[in-house]
Nucleic acid binder design. Structure first.
Lengths: 359, 359
DNA sequence: CTGAAAGCGCTTACAG
DNA sequence: CTGAAAGCGCTTACAG
């Protein structure tokens, strides 16, 4: 059914049909009703492509999840690519929040997961083909930045989650991040309050902003408290369960393991728990563990994991809202926002017994 | 940049540009190369709307997650709608598998979560507007069936996950489900092998096919083994953690609790674990618990949960592949497939001590 | 081998 | 108030 057909049926012209659909004034109520009734009856809806070609706005954005592995380092991860990104605790909350918020603002959302440079090329082309009005990128690494930077320069609307605004010299994009640094400061400060001074960190994939910032918060806090940190105190993980496992094994390889470990996300904390248990040790008696993300499973762990909560939904909602607003205003502008991180105390950390107390 | 512009730049006509892009024969290699070079240089890509209007295929499908609550029954769930669907363990694997498989087959995917009848109306209109070529619906309830049935009758391409094919009289749609019945038979048979005869079930939301089939498998297995089942043995949950919690409380309200509980998904098993622990009981010593789904957190529970594995990725991949194939063939046809369910034995079930053994 | 022209289904000034 | 017509950016028979 085309507007032409509907028009003939009603003895009107396409122009009139179009005008009632687009809510033009100066149309008699009677015509309006007649047309709407027919639209309902015949399930007519204007062809979106024709509309767009005629100048009507798209109202479509994309959410692009980046899972590009561009380093050749061996990964301690499951070998099949498919199992990777959706294990990520942020996947569901971010995707669903973007979808919900966009739908609320009357936008459609395209979803795409990019595993390689070629995938990113395809993403680029959905801009050039004018399929979308803008996009939200999640978790870009530096190497992908060039391509996104070009898109921004070409006046496309872009929001980024988990990407530092300092990568790009210009600021005409939207950057929404968790306050990873602050969260990490809170976590480490808590460990210090509990009397720990020998603290290790298992980092995330340091190509990701969140991993970098969490490490920075760790270092800064220790430094501010005058605690010297050896190189030994850092294990480079990659946000996967198995790297958490390896991290613990690394820290316990020698005679002087730390008394607490700051694990850069909860998924790695799961691996850490396993390693601790294999070593015949107990959490928190023998080692305190603190995580990050407050993934929903973290409260089910045994013992329940102390962690830092960040709201992926809030981040995604904010990114979506700001992106669509700037699309609607047709005005590209730079926005940088951080979303709070809060410490969730559970049972995986305990105070160090000082010499005073033990005697 | 339009094809016209590119053509002028090269001293050619739009027709020629179009022909090299669409890989027509009989174009000299030199022209071909010249055009491709310019395309790269100017980041030209044909406007998708214009292409579609001119008759080129869409190559876009939608994945629609249904989370419509049409019953007024009190829910034991968190009050905000937002927190619901993405807590679902199938969300990530299904969405990412659909996206990956579609991308592999060169299709874009639109994502939408429908919470209400109005949302479903919007979904309907993306078909009428010819934005998509087909869609995958996940988790429809009977009340939503009418609308989807209409779409199928109107010759739209549709695949459904977790919907029974018997709801619709015609079969011109694709139905992909886990073999919930068989999985449930395996779970209950295992409990019987362990010597349990007093077994309770916490069901899922019985508006969902999976919940119904899991209950059916439970009943059938008991019946086949000549075990009588009282009404008391069924607690009506809704797949949420809190209903698992309530279920256990229900079973332990009286003097003769069951010795094993079949919990219809792992999320409810988490709630069940909590309730058992609050009651001061131990799993599996005092009560055996078996779950369903093999959600990734189920192995982290304490004790690790015995459950039934179904591959959401496989289901989603199959649905996507079949949907796109039938779109490409322009031939709507009915397909019904089931994906295997397998028992994963862990540590939450133990054999009942018979009187013989205890003496 | 390649260009001119029709047509896809809309919207929107322009007339009346 | 409403219709005829141009135009959006492509593709694809039709000619040559």
């Amino acid at each position: 059914m085309r507007s032409e057909d509907l028009a003939k049926l009603l003895g009107l012209s396409r122009s009139t049909i179009s005008r009632v659909i687009n809510n033009y004034p100066d149309i008699p109520q009677s015509t309006r009703e007649k047309v709407w009734k027919a639209i309902e009856e015949y399930n007519y809806a204007p062809n979106a492509s024709a509309q767009k070609l005629a100048g009507v706005k798209n109202k479509m954005i994309a959410i692009i999840l980046l899972d590009v592995k561009d380093n050749e380092e061996p990964h301690h991860v499951k070998s099949t690519d498919d199992t990777l990104i959706h294990d990520n605790p942020f996947f569901s909350p971010i995707v669903s929040a973007v979808s919900d918020q966009a739908n609320k603002m009357d936008y459609y959302v395209l979803i795409s997961i990019a595993y390689s440079k070629e995938d990113l090329k395809k993403v680029q082309s959905i801009f050039y083909q004018k399929i979308i009005d803008g996009a939200i990128f999640v978790g870009t690494q530096e190497s992908e930045n060039e391509l996104i930077f070009n898109l921004i320069e070409q006046k496309h609307f872009i929001a980024m989650i988990d990407t530092s605004e300092v990568y790009n010299k210009n600021h005409n994009a939207i950057y929404i991040n968790a306050d990873n640094f602050e969260g990490s400061v809170k976590a480490v400060s808590y460990l210090l309050e509990l009397g720990h001074t020998s603290i290790g960190i298992i980092t995330g994939n340091l190509n990701k902003l969140s991993a970098k910032e969490r490490l920075a918060g760790f270092k800064t806090t220790l430094m501010q408290h005058g605690i010297e940190m050896t190189k030994d105190a850092i294990y480079h993980g990659d946000f996967t369960e198995s790297s958490g496992y390896e991290g613990v094994k690394y820290f316990f390889r020698g005679p002087n393991p730390p008394t607490a470990i700051f694990v850069s996300n909860d998924t790695m904390a799961v691996g850490a728990y396993k390693a601790v248990s294999e070593l015949g040790l107990r959490i928190p008696k023998d080692i305190s563990i603190i995580g990050f993300d407050n993934s929903f499973f973290s409260s089910y762990l045994n013992p329940p994991l102390t962690t830092v909560e960040i709201s992926f939904s809030d981040i995604a909602k904010k990114a979506t809202t700001l992106l669509i607003e700037s699309i609607e205003k047709e005005q590209q502008r730079g926005i940088v926002e951080k979303v709070n991180a809060t410490l969730i105390k559970r049972e995986s950390c305990q105070a160090i017994k000082s010499d005073d107390e033990t005697k």
